[in-house]
Nucleic acid binder design. Structure first.
Lengths: 255, 255
DNA sequence: AAAATCAATCAAAGGATTTCAAAATAATTC
DNA sequence: GAATTATTTTGAAATCCTTTGATTGATTTT
């Protein structure tokens, strides 16, 4: 059987069942485990499915709750470690900008500083913040369906009313030559503006973003301080300028 | 069974029953207690459910918001009936303003019109709307801790950028002489502005608000159309002017 | 205080990667 | 057009990593 036939059958099976076990594919296709694995690898590379432990699953699930990001338990732990360290950078009486996104969301439970004022473009963030009795301003604008972030011209306009001691920004790619990048131009514009309005900018990001490059540039590497869970691999990632990097210790995260 | 299948089943069970016992999941999934615990742990980490002693429960924003007020079964039914009727007033291609509040929140699942654009000052509303793939603009401003509504000068300023076919507004008091009233002056100002910017204004309110008077006046009775679950008692409530009132039929609400 | 539930730990099973040699296919040469 | 060589694809084995279920002792609930 040709490789193409196999892969087509895999996709058809997935279209029907939404998930499929590796063993099932092996017996269905009369191919060796290795071959099927390689097929899955290739299809994942083409973004046609998602590999999971023991098999593969459709990217878009009927239940779209699960598909937002492939987040293993480990990843969640990492994010929490980063979030916890980032939260300690907020000092009493600070005015901070909190970018929308999961890592910045995780920061909120760890905020201990008093009399803090937060501006955010993430409605979920606002929700958590007011529960913690933290003064919170939400930016206005269009809600993006995928990331649930507020973006657009209205957001850009309303953020101008503020000045920040510190801005915490999430990104999708960190690269020495391309700087910080993210897929959506509107989001990039807002992040950039937040950075311009802040005295200090922290990039909060798990280490998987190193050497990734996304569509839109936000600003250069040296313009912000990185908070991450792991030092970047120095082979593919050469920090020539004096970019500051804080590394979170995952072991000490309890909550 | 793959981990993902298990977790999806857990979420589906929760969606139906709202709570689920650990033991029930163990026997349903044919997995060990440890495994189910780990699944719950992970799903909680991703903010997809809340773990409680003995099992897990749904973390619906709706649930949280509702239990502030008395949410007896009757009251919920009443609100849903009002919300359902109100939602039918939204027509294809409308631009509507949705006030923050529980009744307007309940409207969202009942919206069937196509190509609707919604502006709201309730972050929770925005969340639900984008899930329904409805275009949604969130007003900027300070988040009020009690009602989770966005208010203040920034909100007043950013709402001016819009014009509405229809505005749906919640109130705390409805009285023939005092008109519509609400406790917070900032919220009142925003509701008034929304009304001014709209061609038609509906007041969505359960019947308990009749003859109640709250601190701040929003506008006069005749300026809007009331949607409620029950006609006001005519002794204490004399509708002298030609105020329009729609009364919802609670019997026919199923969902 | 007793019963139930939970968190932490650990060994075993199952799954994933890597590596290497054997087939199969394609390309080249005579 | 056959023989030979190069390239790609495949399968099997060794090693590494993840997931799982059982057990323990600590917490919580009644």
């Amino acid at each position: 059987m040709l490789a193409e036939e196999r892969q087509l059958m895999i996709l058809k099976t997935l279209a029907v069942d939404h998930v499929v076990k590796l063993k099932a594919l092996v017996s269905m296709l009369n191919a060796s485990e290795s071959t099927v694995r390689r097929d899955l690898q290739e299809l994942e590379g083409r973004h046609l499915l998602r590999r999971v432990h023991g098999g593969a699953s459709l990217l878009r699930k009927l239940n779209d709750e699960l598909d937002m990001e492939t987040k293993t338990f480990k990843n969640v732990q990492k994010k929490k470690a980063v979030a916890r360290l980032a939260a300690t950078k907020i000092k009493d009486n600070d005015c901070v900008f909190l970018d929308a996104g999961t890592t910045t969301l995780e920061m909120i439970p760890f905020i201990t500083a008093k009399n803090v004022t937060v501006v955010t473009n993430g409605p979920a963030h606002g929700d958590l913040l007011v529960r913690k009795k933290i003064i919170c301003y939400l930016l206005g604008g269009q809600m993006k369906s995928t990331t649930k972030a507020v973006i657009g011209s209205l957001a850009l306009q309303s953020i101008n009313l503020f000045r920040f001691d510190t801005a915490f920004i999430g990104v999708n790619g960190i690269d020495p030559s391309m700087g910080y990048t993210t897929p959506d131009p509107e989001e990039a514009a807002l992040k950039r503006r937040a950075h311009d309005l802040a005295q200090r900018t922290y990039i909060v990001s798990d280490s998987s973003k190193f050497s990734e490059i996304s569509f839109c540039k936000i600003f250069d590497l040296g313009e912000a301080i990185i908070i991450t869970d792991h030092l970047p691999d120095l082979d593919g990632f050469k920090v020539t300028d004096k970019t500051e990097i804080y590394v979170a210790d995952q072991e000490t995260v309890d909550r």
